[in-house]
């Protein structure tokens, strides 16, 4: 069986499994949010300051918030079936429009952070495994323990203090220079400068996780019989590490990396707030504060889709790395 047909089979199986998962997530989210005290009408009324019982009731009626929960749920599911995420009372806009504005920012941030985390994590892990027990291993270990144990927002603030306030090298927040007229490569550079600190604050925790995993997986792979076979062929330590050990060691790393992807989205909420990054994380935060449940539900649905896509990707990468994985 060729690699391609193998991958196609894995893709079909995982996609089919995703559909019921998503429906379950939507219903569960909807019911959970009903448990939170207050609704959008309360918040709007509170903000205006002069609302009467009648105006609040009118607002509720307008957004259907006075209906029984079950009716609201069915209405929401009906919307979804027509590919609509509903309407936000607060922004006075369709939810899909609001989310579409913010989605690219978050996706770019997450992907950059993930790429950084994998690149640094696997490199550091390989170095640590190669020098296991000697000083490079110990030194990196200490650094990694710090990344692992310090909360992301604090690292974010410290990075701002160092690189923005003290050194003045990088901007402290936002996603691009306001009113700039540059384009092409200069624009990319401008955006990248704004990206570095948030992506790094988000990535550090995962660098810690991936490098430890890589180290452990490589040390384990090094003791395998096929490594001895490779040495008996006369291969150099370098060729053995990169030709035989690393690829086997990446198998457990990709599994755990996939499981942590959901956490990356959670971390984005904090980092986007610290760096005033215009992404979904901050939108979610605002939606919670204003009880704008239709926006929140939309974001939660999208997040679950992102996590599912991530899992499918992990399955595909695994199937590509490991020929023993086939459809069951």
């Amino acid at each position: 069986m060729s690699t391609m047909t193998r991958l196609a089979k894995v893709l079909r199986r995982t996609t089919l499994q995703a559909v019921p998962t998503v429906i379950g997530i939507v219903i569960l989210n909807f019911l959970l949010l009903q448990l939170a005290p207050g609704d959008a009408a309360d918040v709007l009324a509170g903000e205006s300051g002069s609302a009467t019982m009648e105006t609040v009731a009118a607002l509720r009626a307008r957004f259907g918030l006075d209906q029984p929960v079950l009716v609201q749920l069915i209405a929401y599911l009906d919307n979804l079936a027509h590919f609509s995420l509903g309407f936000s009372p607060r922004y006075n806009l369709p939810v899909s429009d609001i989310i579409a504005q913010r989605l690219p920012g978050t996706v770019i941030l997450m992907l950059t952070a993930l790429a950084l985390a994998l690149a640094f994590g696997i490199t550091l892990g390989t170095v640590m495994a190669t020098y296991a027990g000697r000083w490079p291993d110990r030194l990196i270990s200490v650094g990694i323990t710090l990344f692992y144990s310090i909360p992301g927002f604090w690292i974010g603030l410290m990075l701002i203090l160092l690189f923005s306030v003290k050194l003045g090298w990088l901007p402290s927040g936002g996603s691009g220079t306001i009113g700039t007229t540059v384009s092409g490569f200069a624009l990319v550079i401008d955006r990248a400068r704004y990206m570095v600190l948030p992506a790094l604050s988000l990535a550090l925790f995962y660098i810690a996780i991936y490098s430890r995993l890589t180290r452990a997986a490589m040390l384990d792979a090094q003791t395998q019989d096929y490594v001895r076979t490779a040495a008996a062929k006369g291969l150099s330590p370098f060729a053995i590490t990169f030709g035989h050990v690393l690829r086997n060691a990446l198998l457990p790393v990709t599994t755990v990396a996939g499981m942590h992807l959901g956490g990356l989205l959670g971390g984005a909420v904090v980092v986007e707030t610290v760096y005033s990054w215009p992404g979904l994380g901050r939108l979610a935060f605002e939606a919670v504060m204003s009880r704008d449940f239709s926006v929140l539900l939309g974001i939660l649905l999208l997040s679950s889709l992102l996590v599912i896509i991530a899992n499918v990707t992990v399955d595909l990468v695994q199937a590509w790395l490991d020929p023993r994985i086939e459809t069951r």
């Binding site: 096929y226 001895r228 076979t229 490779a230 008996a232 062929k233 690829r247 086997n248 020929p323």
Partner: peptide, 21 residues
Amino acid sequence: RRGRDIAMIFQEPMTSLNPVL
């Protein structure tokens, strides 16, 4: 010399080959 002048095979054929190559 290894693998060229002196070669070796091992007891465990099930694990002596790299499973992903």
